[in-house]
C-alpha cells in the first residue's frame, strides 16, 4: 500500500510553495493597501450631508459587500478587457480583492467615525474649525485607533481569500498546489502544506493584532 505521506515529495515541492507564498503575501499587502485607503474615502463620502453623494456610495458598498468575491473577480476578469483594460491576472486579482474589502473597511471606518463623541464635533465647531480640518486633526485621529484590530482582522481575512485568485489563474499558493497536485497525482501533500502555511501565518497575524490592541489600550493610560 502506498504510504500516506511521501516526505521526499514534500521536500521537493516546499521551495516552490514557499516562493508562491511570496506572491500571496504581495497580493495581500497591495490588496489591503487599496482596501484601507478606498475604504476611508467611501466612509467619509457616506457621511456626506449631500444625499446625491451619500446614497450612491451606500448602495455601492452594500452591493459589493453582499455579493460573492468570486463572482466579482470573474466579472472584472471578463468585462474589463471589453473596455480596453487588458491587465495581467495578478492586477485584476488585487483590484478585485481591494475593491471587495474596501466595502468591509468602509463599514469599519464608519463605525469608528460615528463613535467619536458628538461633543468633539461641537467643540470643533465652536472653535470655528473648518470641516476638513475637523476631520483631519480631531475626528480621524480619535476614530482610527479603536478600529485597528477590526482592520487587522480584515487584513487576515483578505490574506485567507487570496486562494480565490487561483480561479483566474494567478500563480499564488493555491494555484501552485493544484498544478503540483495534478502533475504528480498527489494532492495530499501540496494542499496540506498550503493549509498549514495559511494556518501558521494567520495565527501569527492574529497574535500580532492582539499585541497591537494591547499596546493601543495601555498607551492612553
Amino acid at each position: 500500500m502506498e504510504e500516506l505521506v511521501d516526505w521526499g515529495f514534500v521536500w521537493d515541492i516546499l521551495p516552490l510553495l514557499l516562493r508562491a507564498t511570496l506572491v500571496t503575501i504581495e497580493a495581500t499587502l497591495i490588496g489591503f493597501g487599496i482596501a484601507a485607503s478606498l475604504g476611508l474615502l467611501l466612509a467619509i463620502g457616506r457621511m456626506s450631508r449631500q444625499p446625491w453623494i451619500a446614497w450612491p456610495i451606500a448602495g455601492f458598498v452594500e452591493f459589493i459587500r453582499s455579493t460573492p468575491l468570486l463572482v466579482q473577480l470573474f466579472f472584472m476578469f471578463f468585462v474589463l478587457p471589453k473596455f480596453g483594460l487588458v491587465m495581467p491576472a495578478f492586477l485584476t486579482g488585487i483590484l478585485g480583492l481591494g475593491l471587495h474589502y474596501s466595502s468591509y473597511c468602509a463599514e469599519v471606518y464608519r463605525a469608528g467615525l460615528e463613535n467619536v463623541p458628538r461633543g468633539q464635533w461641537e467643540a470643533a465647531l465652536a472653535l470655528n474649525l473648518s470641516l476638513p480640518r475637523t476631520y483631519w486633526d480631531i475626528v480621524i485621529p480619535q476614530a482610527i485607533p479603536p478600529i485597528i484590530p477590526a482592520l487587522g482582522n480584515y487584513l487576515v481575512s483578505l490574506f485567507k481569500e487570496t486562494p480565490l485568485l487561483s480561479a483566474i489563474a494567478v500563480l499564488e499558493l493555491m494555484q501552485t498546489a493544484k498544478i503540483l497536485g495534478s502533475e504528480y497525482f498527489r494532492y495530499l501533500e501540496p494542499i496540506t502544506i498550503v493549509g498549514l502555511l495559511f494556518l501558521g501565518l494567520s495565527l501569527l497575524a492574529a497574535a500580532a493584532i492582539r499585541r497591537v490592541e494591547h499596546w493601543l489600550t495601555t498607551r492612553k493610560g
Binding site: 468633539q120 480631531i138 485621529p141
Partner: peptide, 9 residues
C-alpha cells in the same frame, strides 16, 4: 461646554 469636550489626543 458642560462636559468639557477637550480633544483627548
Amino acid at each position: 461646554f458642560q462636559h468639557f469636550n477637550l480633544f483627548p489626543h
